[in-house]
């Protein structure tokens, strides 16, 4: 159908009163139809920036992004974002937040309510439909953000640390739930996480990014059979993958931190 192809993409943030900043450096990647790709990388390496370019809210400085044959020229609900910071609208009730994308697409009221309720139930928050975001916990709000993105039935789901605010148990449950949704809808997913175990548990392929400016330094196939329920770190195949990813990542994380602390001192 329509694979996503990111080709030699760079993002340079320009600012009038500071030097321009290269956040993403020549990244190329492909996501096949129905594929689940995870991205790991040190904090500040440009993972969110990359997702923003795929969605279109950030304008790439160079390179091309294609979904199928169409070149990405701006934001679209077909490349739906789940924001790291949730980005709910605080004046809208939960259900109206979930409906938001559909409303922008011009879907009529009763239909969008129906779709939104289904997806709200999928993330386990059906009984909170009339609450306001500030009345929910961080983890619950994050799940509302996921339901909002699912509701527009995107060609590709761009999830930016979507379980970052969840506790370990909820994370596990939501991960399994996400796999169920993914298997049923066969939508593509790019899933940014800092949790290597989570990446292994969920993804077909794991992309490792370098310290800023973000480049792709390694790509690892996760050739573990699905379903992976019950798979734990004690499984030797799991442990091997984990070690391999951590080896690549460790020095990048250290470099990234060292740099951030160094510039702190200045």
């Amino acid at each position: 159908m329509s694979e996503l192809r990111v080709e030699n993409v760079c993002l340079r943030y320009e600012s009038p009163d500071r030097e321009s900043f290269l956040a993403v450096d020549n990244v190329s990647l492909t996501v096949q139809d129905g594929e689940f790709v995870a991205i790991v990388g040190p904090s500040g390496c440009g993972k969110s920036s990359l997702l923003f370019m795929v969605n279109g809210i950030a304008k790439r400085t160079s390179g091309v992004i294609r979904l199928g044959s169409a070149v990405v020229a701006g934001p679209s609900p077909s490349r739906a974002l789940v924001f790291q910071e949730f980005a709910l609208l605080p004046w809208r009730s939960i259900i109206r937040n979930v409906e938001f994308g559909l409303e922008l697409m011009g879907v009529d009221k009763s239909r969008r309510r129906e779709v939104a309720m289904t997806n709200l139930a999928l993330v386990g928050l059906a009984q909170f439909e009339n609450h306001l975001p500030h009345q929910l916990s961080g983890g619950m709000r994050q799940r509302v953000g996921i339901a909002r993105a699912l509701s527009v039935q995107p060609d590709i789901l761009l999830m930016d640390e979507p379980f970052g605010a969840l506790d370990a148990q909820t994370r596990q449950v939501m991960g399994t739930e996400l796999l169920r949704i993914w298997e049923r809808s066969r939508t593509k997913i790019i899933f940014v996480t800092h949790d290597i175990d989570e990446a292994i548990y969920l993804a077909d392929r794991i992309i490792i990014m370098s310290a800023s400016p973000g480049r792709i330094i390694d790509e690892i196939e996760v050739n573990l059979p699905r379903p992976r329920v019950g798979l734990t770190r004690s499984d030797p195949r799991f442990a091997k993958l984990h070690d391999r990813i951590w080896k690549v990542l460790e020095s990048e994380v250290q470099e990234s931190l060292a740099r951030q602390f160094a510039s702190n001192g200045k």
Partner: peptide, 13 residues
């Protein structure tokens, strides 16, 4: 900004 982004990301005119 985040609110604006959430609108923009879903293709708001």
């Amino acid at each position: 900004r985040l609110w604006l982004r959430s609108g923009a990301a879903f293709g708001a005119t």
